[in-house]
Nucleic acid binder design. Structure first.
Lengths: 347, 347
DNA sequence: CTTCCGGAATTAATCGATTAATTAAGGAGG
DNA sequence: CCTCCTTAATTAATCGATTAATTCCGGAAG
């Protein structure tokens, strides 16, 4: 292994000079610089990052703590993080909490992850990274979950502490756009299958739905709003309820693709044709939504972009340049129009 | 930040003693050990891994180079790696080559990834890790792709170098089992929609198919074997060809779930009912296969297990204990029986 | 001619651990 | 009593960089 010292000896300069050349600091004459660079090239030298880190107390590494890497949103966020990190010369250390296998879908019990997080922070991460990115499996409150002196940026989750940094997508405007899209197709009676009432995204998405109706001067019918639990079965069940209404909606907006899948199957079950008799819109643009019959119109989440912005944000915080880094970023979603939506027959 | 030196001072011993206590080496009396441990506890000290790495030249970190983390197989493999690494006290540094965005599906052009790999190895990984795990996006030959002195274990891909280490699933026995399953249901005319002829998994799976037929004394009909390209469209097109045969098969085994999806749609198109008139079996157990109509019977790949075994293997190699680590591991797949298969009506 | 200054290089301490070599203190054996 | 071991501790070099402090030198200014 070639060391900085070897370069110095061969180039007949001090180690300090080589270091200054490598880092572009200090006062180095053109000739010396070139001489050193030539030797570096010759010996195919690359600096030992460990030694550098020890002295500078910087690692050019961030930890990515994922609640569950096997959940559909996470890989693409990580992909974005990675892409951005490559450009910045950062590495990422990945820690996976496996929340799903730990607590299933009982998100309220997220507290039980605290020991796991503490262990990750203590034993693996905190000594080797400059900052921490936390990726949730579902947008929810994780206030107080991470206790560390290092910078943290949250994505796909949020905290109630206004000092915390986070990157998310804009739920309200996404739901607004989806509703607006259906209204522009001609729909006036639009069912909504919501997530649990105590979930923030459910609230935001409901607000978007409500505002879009209002902006178009359409009435709001409480009986068109049903509360599910994000799972297929609730979509199936609630769609049956909606379709059983004496004056059923001509379109249903489900707050995720899984429940939308339930809606589609309820339609098959009841002999309701999609999109001719009922338009269905999902949310998330999960892989499965492409394979539904008919292919589902849905909202694509800006996952990769979220990853990129998250990495960019933590990098800014780490390199405190004095510039004021905004605490929260919200990114727009994008409608993906497929075959589950059409203009209503009898608007 | 508390340093080892601080512990030593407070406990009135030398730094060496503290180090020996921490690592359980050297000759330390019980009283001294307890005294030191008490101080460590009091000051809430954790050793600086960077400093340790510098001296020992070990990092307890492995690099995971993924060809594409957004491909369905990769997250679960990484999950397995992570689980095993946690148990061993290892961290993982993740590098993502984004092969799909680089070269799409033209796998033969994998060579073009070499510069990216070289960059990853040089600038990020090689100085900070004890070993390297490489995860492919598709089982294929990656001989010579990674040039490094560190231990490497390949998974979800293979090399022709018998010195290389790799972990994979057993294609041949999986295809054998799938075919055997159909035969036991009563099928005698079984179509096969293969991957490209120049792909190793295609070969192995074909061998499994062929052997199962032979073992049951069934004839092999070449016209029942069609060669696709792993994509949905080829499944659709080739299923139409098979169904157009004067004596069409009563079951079709597709070598992946995407092509099986094409088969299902071809059946819908031709009015062939699944599974009543045709049984369909896929391969991979991708998320989408659960959402097909009918839900697809398919082969589940032991992805998490592969990750675990891969991590375990690289750990053994890193800790060269002299034990002979087997060069290749092959894991069994598992049939997932859903609603696309049944006994044939007229066997 | 002396002093001062600035550019270009070097010296040497330092980051926080590990560990070979050494020392010191008892105890056993001759 | 002296020697030799064993056990338990310390000393100090080392890993491979960074960087504050210092030195050296030549030219400009007074």
């Amino acid at each position: 292994m070639v060391r900085l010292k070897d370069i110095a000896k061969k180039a007949n300069v001090s180690t300090a000079t080589v270091s200054y050349v490598l880092n572009g600091t200090g006062n180095i004459s053109k000739e010396t610089r070139e001489k050193v660079l030539k030797v570096i090239e010759e010996l195919n030298y690359t600096p030992n990052q460990i030694a550098k880190s020890l002295k500078t107390n910087k690692t050019s590494t961030v930890a990515v703590i994922a609640e569950d890497i096997t959940v559909f949103n996470t890989p693409e966020i990580i992909d974005g993080i990675n892409e951005c990190a490559d450009g910045l010369g950062f590495s990422i250390i990945l820690a996976n909490l496996r929340v799903h296998r730990r607590i299933g879908n009982r998100f309220s019990e997220i507290e039980s992850c605290k020991p796991a997080i503490k262990q990750v922070l203590d034993s693996l991460v905190s000594k080797k990274v400059d900052g921490i990115i936390y990726i949730g499996v579902h947008p929810r409150d994780v206030t107080g979950l991470i206790e560390t002196a290092k910078p943290v940026v949250y994505t796909y989750c949020y905290t109630t502490n206004p000092e915390d940094y986070s990157v998310n997508y804009d739920d309200e405007s996404a739901a607004y756009d989806a509703t607006d899209y259906l209204i522009r197709l001609g729909h006036k009676k639009i069912g909504l299958i919501s997530g649990p009432i105590d979930s923030l995204p459910s609230h935001s998405r409901f607000n978007g739905y409500y505002k879009a109706l209002a902006d178009h001067g359409l009435p709001f019918y409480p009986q068109y709003v049903k509360t599910g639990d994000w799972e297929y079965e609730s979509g199936f069940r609630l769609a049956r309820e909606l379709l059983g209404d004496p004056e059923p909606p001509t379109a249903i907006l489900a707050m995720n693709d899984l429940m939308a899948g339930g809606v589609l199957d309820a339609c098959k079950d009841k002999g309701v044709r999609v999109p001719e008799e009922l338009s269905v819109v999902g949310f998330d643009n999960r892989e499965c939504s492409f394979y539904y019959t008919p292919k589902l119109t849905t909202m694509d989440l800006p996952l990769r972009e979220m990853g990129i912005r998250t990495m960019d944000m933590i990098h800014r915080i780490i390199n405190r340049t004095g510039e004021d880094v905004p605490r929260t970023v919200k990114l727009k979603c994008r409608m993906i129009e497929r075959h589950s939506t059409a203009a209503p027959r009898n608007p």
